[in-house]
């Protein structure tokens, strides 16, 4: 890591303070029965970085995503996006505030076209209100959204599929579509839950370049990934979870050498099948 890197000088320890955090959580807890799925004292995500979230299956990564984005309610804790408290805020409002997530199991809107998948994600379309839809007057917004969607589809190599049903895409193309669709919302923070799972190696490379592209375009990316090589390649920072806790965080090259991580994550991971 070069000295002018935003994370230079940040100590590689769990819960460390970052120079410019976009997301801060305190005392976040969620249990299912007796199982502490998430139990994190303090966590910060640095703005404009790619932060990888790793850990063995069942570590609580998806649950953490669900909590932060309002899809699940914590038993305790509070968290802020850009200074705004998100406790008790409905998931759709969290998305509107600029934190958009994707799902571990891809969720394309199968019987909508690829273009409609994109358009439905656009914000502030007056035609989405009941009254606005009847009175018309939304066509100008729609044209502008179509332009933006076309640009994104070109960027993600999906433009030739714009008028196909999303249900007809391959698994990898759906992952791309889900990412492109999230960008239609012009989010500040993009949370990707295993975007690379089940994607062939060629597409993986293209997904990776999209992820770094997002950061370079001024977004903050948090993503869950199993493959340590991938994590090494693109992360600015790595957070390691095991059994609901953050057991380590730091720059990728340091995390790779951390004995606790090798023990809890890499050792376990190499022995088991992927999710």
């Amino acid at each position: 890591m070069s000295a002018d890197h935003p994370m230079a000088g940040v100590a590689p320890e769990p819960g460390v303070h970052k120079p410019d955090p976009v997301l801060i959580s305190n005392g976040l807890q969620r249990s299912f029965g007796g199982l502490h799925a998430v139990d994190i004292d303090h966590l910060e995500i640095q703005r404009h970085t790619v932060t990888s979230l790793i850990g063995p299956n069942g570590a609580g990564k998806t649950t953490l995503f669900n909590l932060l984005t309002g899809f699940d309610k914590p038993d305790a804790g509070e968290w802020h996006l850009d200074g705004g408290a998100l406790v008790g805020i409905a998931a759709f409002r969290v998305a509107r505030r600029g934190m958009v997530r994707t799902f571990q199991l891809t969720r394309s809107l199968a019987r909508l076209t690829v273009m409609d998948n994109m358009l439905v994600a656009a914000k502030d379309n007056e035609g989405e209100g009941l009254w606005g839809s009847l009175t018309g007057g939304w066509h100008a917004t729609e044209r502008a959204n179509e332009q933006r969607a076309s640009g994104l589809l070109v960027r993600f190599g999906l433009d030739h599929m714009a008028n196909e049903y999303a249900g007809g895409l391959s698994g990898g193309q759906r992952k791309l579509l889900e990412m492109a669709r999230a960008l239609m919302m012009e989010p500040e923070v993009v949370m990707l839950d295993e975007p690379m799972a089940g994607v062939n190696p060629v597409l993986t490379q293209s997904l990776l370049s999209h992820i770094t592209g997002l950061r370079d375009g001024g977004k903050t990316v948090v993503f869950v990934e199993h493959d340590m090589d991938v994590v090494q390649e693109i992360s600015d920072w790595v957070i390691v979870m095991a059994q609901g806790r953050v057991i380590a965080e730091g720059p990728p090259e340091i995390i790779a050498k951390n004995p606790a991580v090798i023990d809890a994550y890499l050792g376990a991971h190499h022995g088991e099948a992927a999710e």
Partner: peptide
């Protein structure tokens, strides 16, 4: 209209539509 498109999106996948 865009209203109808949201409705169809909900039919396809509620959580995905919430995430949007």
């Amino acid at each position: 209209s865009p209203w109808g498109r949201v409705l169809k999106a909900i039919r396809e996948d509620e959580d995905a539509t919430i995430s949007l």
